[in-house]
């Protein structure tokens, strides 16, 4: 319970600076973009007529709709992959690594790569994925393949590999937190009630970590939806997601249409978050 009464005047005063900042830096620009997306003309003019034609144009061009579909599909694929791997890492860290020092060391190993900029991390993947890249050389050396695999660079597979390395941590952290908060006596009590380890996991541990899983999924979903750099660096110019489309349109001077794509991207992200929040009430996270 907050020491402040909900409707007290002082709480409004305290919220005002942050609220004002949000208004100027976030809400106003967002509304502005939404407004631009309805402009009838391509040129900048405050007295523009408003129309839905831009949206009609987007949805009547299969190429654009496919980019929307690809973006959502990529987000779902990434949520599945990082969800499973991230949970496994979190479970290993919390349940199997008992020594706190070792736990911290492993966690640092996961975090340290993120001290470099996202751009460098993305570019660093290119030498790994190429035809003569590290992965191919390793596969050849181990005799798993006879000739280099071309499916890594400039492909969705390559993007997925790179994004897995970027975003798995986002799915791991919140699960680590929720796993740590489960008292040891709960799985023990379940065992004493004749639950096998697998059933302890599905009936007790997993449901209790669900809020962490959902938060991780929200983070991954938002990041993948907004990610244009990975597609640009590793996908070459053959592949595009909504973010790449915005840049492309912006750079070619099609402001209103860039705004349309931006608004659609935003709506897709909001819808996704709304669906995820249906699964679990994250405001209750940390409550006893």
């Amino acid at each position: 319970m907050s020491p402040l009464r909900e409707r007290a005047a002082v709480s409004y005063v305290l919220a005002a600076p942050g609220g004002l900042w949000m208004l100027v830096a976030l809400v106003a620009p967002t509304l502005f973009i939404a407004w631009v997306s309805f402009w009838a003309s391509r040129t900048f003019a405050l007295s523009n007529a408003l129309t839905l034609a831009n949206y009609v144009k987007f949805f009547t061009r299969p190429a654009y709709v496919r980019v929307l579909g690809d973006t959502v599909e990529q987000a779902i694929v990434m949520m599945l992959i990082t969800g499973v791997i991230g949970y496994a890492i979190a479970y290993f860290l919390v349940v199997h690594v008992r020594r706190p020092a070792f736990q911290l060391a492993l966690f640092l190993l996961l975090v340290v790569p993120f001290w470099t900029s996202a751009l460098i991390r993305t570019i660093a993947w290119i030498p790994f994925l190429g035809v003569n890249g590290v992965i191919n050389q390793a596969l050849l050396l181990l005799g798993i393949v006879d000739r280099p695999v071309e499916a890594f660079l400039f492909t969705r597979t390559g993007i997925t590999l790179a994004q897995t390395s970027f975003y798995t941590l986002l799915a791991t952290g919140p699960v680590v937190y929720t796993l740590r908060n489960i008292p040891r006596s709960l799985p023990e009590a379940a065992q004493c009630l004749h639950a096998t380890p697998l059933r302890v996991f599905w009936r007790i541990v997993f449901p209790l970590t669900l809020p962490g899983v959902v938060i991780g999924q929200i983070l991954v979903f938002l990041n993948v939806m907004a990610d244009f750099a990975t597609a640009q660096a590793i996908g070459g110019h053959k592949l595009a997601f909504l973010g790449n489309l915005v840049i492309l349109l912006y750079e070619s001077g099609q402001l209103t249409f860039a705004a349309v794509v931006g608004v659609l991207l935003m709506i897709a992200m909001l819808l996704g978050v709304a669906v995820l929040l249906k699964v679990v009430d994250i405001r209750r996270l940390g409550a006893p």
Binding site: S185, E188, A189, C192
Partner: peptide
């Protein structure tokens, strides 16, 4: 069966 000090209710 076991009863825990913190009751360990799910």
């Amino acid at each position: 069966a076991m009863m825990f000090q913190d009751f360990a209710l799910f």
